[in-house]
C-alpha cells in the first residue's frame, strides 16, 4: 500500500500548487453558503408566517434547511467535480510523466487508487470546510443529528461516485478540457435518467445517481443505496484500469 500513499501525497501537493483547487474551493464555499443562507432565511420567515401556524410542529430544521441544502450541494458538486478530476491522468500524459509512472515498480491499480484517494481527500476538505454552516446551525438551533450524519455519509458516497467518473474520463484523453466535458456529460446523463421517470422504484429511477442521496438525507441508510454508490465507484475505477491497461497493447 506504500505506493498508493506515495501517489496520493504527490497528487494532493500538486492540487494545492495549482490555482484550480483554490478557485474550485472558493466558488463551492460561496455557492453552498448562499444556498444555505437562503434556505435558513426561508425557514425563519416561515416561523412567523401565520399561514403555517397550524403546522409548526411539522416545520423543522432538518426538512426545511438541511435536506434541501444537501440536494443543492449535490448539484453544485456535479458541476464542480469534473474540474477536480480532469487533470488526474490527462496531465500525466501531457507531461510525459505517464512513462515514469508506468515504468516504475508499482501496479496500475495502485496508481489509480492513489489518484482516486487524493481527489477524494480534496473533496473531503471541501465538504468539511463547508460544514461550518451546519455547525453554526447546531450552535443556535437543534436539528436532528442522525439525518445530518447520514446525509453526510450519503454526500461522501455521492462525491466518490462523481470522482470515479471523472477519473475514468481523465484516462480517456490527454486534454484536460475534454476530460472535464466527458465526465460532466456522463454525470448529467445519470442525473437526467432519474428526472425522466417519476416512479422511484423504476429501473431508471434506481440508476439515477442523485435519487439515492434522498434516503440518506431523510436519515434512512439503506443497503441498496450504499451498494449502488460503492458499485458505481468500483465500476468507475475498474473501467479506468481497463483503459490504462489496454492502452499499452495498442
Amino acid at each position: 500500500m506504500k505506493p498508493v500513499y506515495t501517489i496520493l501525497k504527490r497528487e494532493l501537493k500538486s492540487y494545492f500548487a495549482s490555482p484550480i483547487a483554490y478557485v474550485v474551493l472558493l466558488v463551492f464555499l460561496v455557492l453552498s453558503g448562499i444556498f444555505f443562507f437562503l434556505y435558513l432565511q426561508g425557514f425563519v420567515e416561515s416561523q412567523f408566517d401565520p399561514r403555517f401556524q397550524f403546522f409548526k410542529e411539522r416545520i423543522n430544521l432538518n426538512d426545511f434547511v438541511i435536506r434541501p441544502y444537501f440536494g443543492t450541494v449535490s448539484i453544485i458538486l456535479l458541476i464542480m467535480m469534473p474540474l477536480i478530476t480532469m487533470r488526474l491522468i490527462a496531465e500525466e500524459r501531457r507531461n510525459f510523466t505517464a512513462e515514469l509512472l508506468f515504468t516504475s515498480p508499482v501496479r496500475v491499480f495502485h496508481i489509480i487508487l492513489g489518484k482516486f484517494l487524493a481527489s477524494f481527500s480534496f473533496f473531503g476538505v471541501m465538504v468539511l470546510i463547508s460544514a461550518v454552516y451546519v455547525i453554526v446551525l447546531m450552535a443556535y438551533g437543534n436539528p436532528d443529528l442522525g439525518p445530518l450524519l447520514s446525509g453526510y455519509l450519503g454526500l461522501f458516497l455521492l462525491g466518490g461516485s462523481f470522482l470515479a467518473v471523472g477519473l475514468f474520463s481523465s484516462s480517456l484523453t490527454e486534454n484536460q478540457i475534454v476530460a472535464a466535458v466527458i465526465s460532466f456529460g456522463i454525470l448529467l446523463v445519470f442525473w437526467i435518467i432519474g428526472a425522466s421517470s417519476d416512479a422511484q422504484d423504476s429501473i431508471l429511477g434506481y440508476l439515477s445517481i442523485i435519487n439515492h442521496l434522498d434516503n440518506f438525507t431523510k436519515g434512512v441508510i439503506e443497503l441498496k443505496d450504499i451498494v449502488y454508490y460503492l458499485s458505481f465507484i468500483f465500476f468507475g475505477l475498474f473501467l479506468t484500469h481497463i483503459m490504462l491497461e489496454s492502452e499499452k497493447w495498442r
Partner: peptide
C-alpha cells in the same frame, strides 16, 4: 518525465519513493 509544479528535491523524493 517531470512535474513542473514540484521542486527538484521534492520530485526526486517522489521518484525515490515509487522506486
Amino acid at each position: 518525465p517531470l512535474y513542473n509544479d514540484m521542486t527538484v528535491e521534492g520530485y526526486l523524493d517522489f521518484v525515490a519513493d515509487i522506486k
